[in-house]
Amino acid sequence: MTCTRVAAAAPAIVINRRLARSAHLATGGRLQLRCGDKGSALPPATFVISGIVDFPFDDAGARTAATSLDDIARLCGETNDDRSEILLVRSRAGAGAGVAAAAIHAALPHLHVVTNEELVERFSRVEFSYFRQISVVLATVTLFFGFLLIAVLLTVSVNQRLGEVAALRALGFSRWRVVAGVLIESVILVFTGGLLAIPLGRRCPCGWTTSCGRCPACPPICTSSRSSHARSFCTSRLLAIAALAAAAYPMRIVGTLPIAATLRREVVS
């Protein structure tokens, strides 16, 4: 908005002290305002200053003026149809938000009535989904690097023990027995890591939820025991897949190991 001093009768407006000082205005003075920039096609409107006030949410350097919604609408060329986007209603003490919402909905069925709890739940489901997305991305990256680490570890370990593996095969250990040995090593590595990491991963968000439990915006991370069991099952399944994937290449090495050639090579080298 732009402002200049004018001398004509007009609707009332209040201004803050900074604006009054900078434009040398006083109560009873007149102020001409234009909606938009200087080049705006809308005609300016003249207001009478009815008071100089402090606005509690003003910035230190703000020059603020306030008038009625009707006058603003006239100034900016809009029609005031007196419609609200949102209405906040406080329920009676002891009645509860649900009762109030039901009563409003019964009286005005065309209104969309929601309680704070419903709103927070909707936020948890929709607005906080990015928390879950970040969690999924972090978990996937962690799982991938865990898989990579164990796969490399197992591959190096198996390559260093080719002679022993070939000797065991020569002594009569079946192909599946030595392959299963590698798989068991992988499972032990992955699940040992999981046993250490999962309780820690559980404890952190639970502590966080407890510490900000009073804040209604916190997404519910620690939920019922049923979903906890589902998560445990999902985690175990992911760990099992990681163990199997990490062991796949070393298992192939062991499974296709030529016994005679390996023994010959190990003895000669």
């Binding site: 000797a167 020569a170 002594l171 009569g172 250990f173 192909r175």
Partner: peptide, 12 residues
């Protein structure tokens, strides 16, 4: 493998 396990031994 079974034959080696039960009937044959090696000293490497």
């Amino acid at each position: 493998s079974r034959l080696r396990l039960r009937e044959i031994g090696f000293v490497f």
